[in-house]
Amino acid sequence: MTYTLNFAAVWRSFDLLLQGLALSLGLALVAILAGCVIGLITAFGLVSKSVLLRKAAGLYVTIIRNTPILVLVLFSYFALPELGVRLGKIESFVLTLAIYSGAYLAEVFRGGLIAVPPGQREAGLAIGLTEMQIRTSIIIPLMLRNVLPSLGSTMISLFKDTSLAAAIAVPELTFEARKINVETFRVIETWIVASCLYVATCSLLAALMRAVERRLAVPR
């Protein structure tokens, strides 16, 4: 093996990688926030009394969960314009990731919803709260506490999925890494640094979620 490690070239482009990481985080943040809204609505659909709502929500989740995200990303960027929906790269990707994450988050939230004892709703009804008030003051707060651990891992895996944006040339971390790889030929260094950035960010996110979990834990 005649290859010697030399990080100098990668350090020179480190700013690019950091910018890429910032964009990755930005994409993830917007997509997951939108995904949480979609997921929450879908989750209530999944546990709804109405068969129609349950079926509709279930169909959405099943389709998304069983389709590769890369196909979805390419589909919305290259095929949707044929239907008259023309979006920029970033918008198209964020939209795709939001819809994609919505399905996974819906499953997470559903699990949390069915873990809230029915007595909680009844107690809310008994003091005269409306169904909406019960949802916002009782069920959603309890559900969120139930799901925090799996919510954390879902968010981390969605953050990693932002790497797929590289496939449509969104200049996020993976795209920048590949560019530096091709331009500098410092192959090993580039990928070590890029992976480390991902791993570090994921660990940071995990630590953040654990802190939130501790913060929100109900004292007993």
Partner: peptide, 23 residues
């Protein structure tokens, strides 16, 4: 932990580029 913290696409790209580099 390292593998799970890295996107699969990065693993794929790294494997493809790095392995050929080290011969």
């Amino acid at each position: 932990d390292f593998i799970r913290g890295t996107p699969v696409l990065v693993l794929v790209l790294a494997s493809y580029y790095v392995l050929s580099t080290v011969g």
